[in-house]
Design a protein around this nucleic acid. Structure first.
Lengths: 122, 122
DNA sequence: ATTACTACTAACCTTTTATATACTACTAAC
DNA sequence: GTTAGTAGTATATAAAAGGTTAGTAGTAAT
């Protein structure tokens, strides 16, 4: 016996759509490192070792993989300056990366606020 | 020889602050399931099996753990209706959960847009 | 009596994610 | 010539996350 008498705040379809949309986003941005790397990139840290130093705790292997994944999603562009010796490689954010600024900003603000909330004695 | 001539878009301190703030947020909201569960909750799915059916793919074990974690962070309240038989347990979003609506909305919008972008032939 | 639903938990196992160490090959400083 | 930096890759291992199965203890329908 199913009770359909409950008032849902959203219809099933709306819920499913939100779920699917957030899943799509998390597929690209989820995980421990991706957003952190993006922050480093837009902060102007564009070279491999520089990014590794900025994003504390990440290993070269993981950074390498994550950069490839971000590149596939057009959130970073790998630029090789072949004229220099030794060759310089830069990972530069794209115009599309800009579309994440609002998201990162809101996430950061929420994080600051949440830390305050949880830290403060109740 | 260190080249400090590069123009950084943000100072080191700003970058570190953003990084720390986003880390704090991801500690609470990161992972495969937490945001999805929150969407189910605010959509009106409040009972254990109901949430499990809505958040496709999650196991009871993981759902149970995630709900505990969300409860600790005041994003859900466990309400037991002891008067009913069998006992009914509800997981209800709190007022604080409202502070995530903007974030979830932006993330969802980004996800929809990104899917379009990647799916479309270039 | 058997099946199914409720709200979980425990034990165990697999998959995913991440780390550590070493290594390439070249440059440049001390 | 020794150390350090550049941009990574290879291999192996460890840790974290998640899944599977089974089980509790009760109700309620077939």
């Amino acid at each position: 016996m199913k009770e359909n008498t409950q008032k849902k705040m959203y219809t099933e379809m709306e819920c499913a759509k939100n779920l699917a949309a957030v899943e799509d986003a998390l597929y690209v941005l989820g995980g421990k490192w991706k957003l952190r790397i993006i922050i480093a990139l837009v902060s102007g840290y564009t070279r491999f070792n520089e990014i590794q130093r900025t994003v504390k705790g990440i290993s070269a292997r993981v950074l390498s993989n994550e950069l490839k994944s971000l590149e596939m999603n057009e959130l970073v562009k790998r630029v090789v300056h072949a004229d220099c010796v030794p060759v310089i490689v830069e990972y530069v954010p794209t115009d599309y990366t800009e579309t994440l600024k609002e998201l990162v900003s809101i996430l950061g603000k929420w994080g600051i606020n949440h830390k305050k909330r949880i830290t403060s004695t109740n």
